[in-house]
């Protein structure tokens, strides 16, 4: 059983916690020891949200050490840049194509980094960077809030578990009204990952 360290980052209200809760339970149900912790602060008031998820044979610390995240999952671009130092050299970055401008930028001389700048920061750590059109996919399946499901689907392609381990958990977690579109979003994320990895020439 390979240890898996996942850092999920975003902004309050984006569904980071739901995704990291699901990911943690899926790990536990697949036989891993699991720990997960969130840094919320006052996230409901628009601050950043960070979830550490750790799967392993026996996990001690709930927090991932800087430089040891196998996966950095970004629900928002600026937050990914902020947490980049947590990446293991050569780790995988998955980023939803979402920009949420913080108030500190509006009407001030601070500037929100361009994608090229963010990519430049990430490339200091890894070449495995996947910017995914999660908002577009979520729109297409008719559930704009299902960006987190697209991300989970995309991530699942990189891990050893069967898709059912993920979808069974999602089924239990979501209200019937959003279930079908969420599962579609998950599958589309999974397919997108397959296609993007193929295009990058990454062998499964």
């Amino acid at each position: 059983m390979k240890d898996v360290n996942v850092l999920m980052v975003g902004v309050g209200g984006q569904g980071v916690i739901l995704a990291s809760d699901a990911m943690s339970e899926i790990g536990m149900n697949s036989g891993y020891d699991v720990k997960k912790t969130d840094s919320l602060g006052m996230a409901q008031r628009g601050g950043s949200v960070v979830s550490h998820v750790r799967w392993g044979e026996h996990v001690f610390s709930p927090m991932i050490k800087r430089g040891e995240a196998d996966f950095l999952i970004g629900f928002e671009q600026l937050e990914v840049a902020r947490w980049a130092p947590y990446l293991k050299p050569g780790g995988v970055v998955i980023i939803a194509d979402v920009v949420v401008i913080p108030v500190s930028v509006i009407g001030s001389n601070m500037h929100y980094p361009t994608w090229q700048e963010i990519e430049g920061i990430l490339k200091q750590y890894t070449e495995q960077i996947y910017l995914i059109p999660a908002p577009r996919i979520a729109q297409e399946v008719g559930n704009p809030r299902a960006i987190n499901m697209v991300i989970l689907g995309f991530l699942s392609e990189f891990l050893e578990l069967k898709p059912e381990a993920w979808t069974d958990n999602i089924r239990r977690r979501l209200p019937p009204k959003f279930l079908e579109s969420s599962l579609k979003a998950f599958t589309r994320g999974l397919e997108e990952a397959g296609a993007m990895r193929l295009a990058k020439g990454v062998k499964k």
Partner: peptide, 19 residues
């Protein structure tokens, strides 16, 4: 000693705020 990446650019803070 590992290759230490250059410090990330100064990134704007995301403070909590009134809704």
């Amino acid at each position: 000693p590992v290759h230490k990446p250059a410090m990330a650019a100064q990134l704007p803070a995301r403070r909590p705020q009134l809704c």
